Deep mutational scan, measured.
Amino acid sequence: MPVRRGHVAPQNTFLDTIIRKFEGQSRKFIIANARVENCAVIYCNDGFCELCGYSRAEVMQRPCTCDFLHGPRTQRRAAAQIAQALLGAEERKVEIAFYRKDGSCFLCLVDVVPVKNEDGAVIMFILNFEVVMEKDMVGSPAHDTNHRGPPTSWLAPGRAKTFRLKLPALLALTARESSVRSGGAGGAGAPGAVVVDVDLTPAAPSSESLALDEVTAMDNHVAGLGPAEERRALVGPGSPPRSAPGQLPSPRAHSLNPDASGSSCSLARTRSRESCASVRRASSADDIEAMRAGVLPPPPRHASTGAMHPLRSGLLNSTSDSDLVRYRTISKIPQITLNFVDLKGDPFLASPTSDREIIAPKIKERTHNVTEKVTQVLSLGADVLPEYKLQAPRIHRWTILHYSPFKAVWDWLILLLVIYTAVFTPYSAAFLLKETEEGPPATECGYACQPLAVVDLIVDIMFIVDILINFRTTYVNANEEVVSHPGRIAVHYFKGWFLIDMVAAIPFDLLI
């Protein structure tokens, strides 16, 4: 008679799926529990143990900040960024110097990925580790590398530091407007667009060049630039800015003055950032001319202004700041037409079709709590990747769950009947059967004279019903998954307890 339990259901295979997918890609990662103190490590794979030199037993239950890997060259700011990422709910990448158990130093890129439950609360953290440099290539500990984003994938490793954006290309926007319009339909740009040429040739750093990471940081200074100062900065030398009595002219307006920039070969870094931020506020060169004239017309309804409409929906549905990093990277690809469009465009503009998908598509409701890094690593669709929660398995109709209350009560009843059979069957065979043979035949009273025979008949009927119930009862397979398919249940029961239950259900007393 089957006594099969499996009270692990309803099970959740999400954690096993993450481990299996990460292991298949030869990654070095740990999984931490966000619900406990210090976000203790609950799993670390073999790749991480080989990377740091510690065994799994030495890593388990330690804080996922990996303070046991810190050393003299470990930056405090990087460690603080990892700790801050564990307090938030967004994906974050941090470069930090770690030390192995043998004392060797290596520069590592740590990717902190939160995993949320159905309520939107962070319950786990996945920390992925990628070695960037070994100890002989690690720089000085005073050099802070965590304020910069990861290198873009479309640049060669040897040319990542030679990417320079020439400031004269930004200063000569109005001069290039006529050349853009003359391109017409034969050019790649839309009317009114501004073409910015980027020099990728390796050259020595000069005062006129600005690194790509500095251009990325310009967006942080746009908020500090007032509207009046932006307007004066875009007017140009024809209309000098008016300053109040006793007030000095704005240095932001002076930063885009061609006369002032041409007199000296070098520009201050602050002026460069502010000038680029001011130019980015204009949607095209037409807006710059309109600002000089004193009238700013409404933005025209053409394809170039609607190019950012799908980007707005993608940004609203993005799951991490990696989408913004990807957008900034692609927006700086050289030799393309940049349409400086305000994100607050007309909502009635139709979304044009684009061959290049900048932001990841909208994630469906079932995966809105899973970050983009987890979705990318697992390579699963929205119909396959579940949320991290207890999910009731989908069972067929008329199927009994093996952990249901009805099955528990039924098993206790069958257990009592088995005990009765084990006690009274030998007793009936030894004593009652002998008395029946010696006594007179009682054929007239039937079952009324033999109450134990009636009980034995009921017990046999219950055993037959138990066999039928076992054909529709779920079970737990070797992978700790609840199986509810009727065919698989029948095959599993035939290979197991079916023969024993059938022999126990045969009414031998009635056959004798």
Results as ranks from 00 to 15, higher is better:
G236T: 08
L165W: 11
T375Y: 08
S178F: 06
A172T: 07
F14Q: 12
A350I: 09
R326P: 11
R328A: 11
P298V: 08
L267D: 12
Q11I: 09
S243I: 01
I359G: 14
P297G: 11
Y54M: 01
A382I: 06
L51G: 01
A303Y: 13
T17Y: 12
A204T: 15
A211S: 13
S104W: 01
T270G: 14
G183T: 09
G24I: 06
V110Y: 01
K93P: 06
C108A: 11
L225R: 15
L316G: 11
K364L: 14
A211E: 08
I363K: 07
I358T: 05
L248D: 13
K344I: 04
Y99H: 15
K344F: 06
P237C: 10
K364D: 08
T174L: 06
N369L: 09
P227L: 05
I82Q: 01
A228S: 06
L378V: 03
F14A: 11
V94F: 01
A89G: 14
S243Q: 07
A203W: 03
G192S: 05
A217N: 06
A223L: 15
V370S: 01
I126V: 12
G224A: 14
P361M: 12
R312W: 10
V112G: 01
H221D: 05
I359M: 05
E274H: 05
P352A: 12
Q25V: 07
Q247Y: 14
S209V: 13
E118L: 13
R273W: 13
T270S: 11
T13L: 10
S255P: 10
L165D: 10
P10Q: 05
D323R: 07
R328N: 12
I363H: 15
D342S: 12
P249C: 10
V110N: 01
H143M: 13
A121S: 13
A217P: 15
S313G: 12
C44Q: 01
G246L: 15
T353S: 10
R77N: 10
S379L: 07
L173H: 15
R326E: 09
K28N: 15
D213P: 07
V132N: 14
R20K: 07
H309S: 11
E214H: 11
S179A: 13
D144G: 14
D286G: 07
Q335R: 08
P299N: 08
L15N: 01
A185F: 06
I42A: 01
P251L: 09
R366E: 03
K332T: 08
F68D: 01
A40I: 06
L385R: 14
R242P: 11
S284Y: 05
D287I: 07
A121G: 13
M133F: 10
R356N: 11
T201V: 05
I30V: 13
V374A: 06
F163R: 15
R181G: 06
L311Y: 09
P141V: 14
A185I: 06
A290T: 15
C64K: 01
L225K: 05
L315P: 12
K373P: 03
P352I: 06
D197Q: 06
I18L: 14
S322A: 09
R77A: 13
S331E: 09
K332Q: 12
R73V: 09
E208Y: 11
G187A: 15
R77T: 13
K135L: 12
I123P: 13
T65G: 03
S178A: 14
D46K: 05
S178T: 10
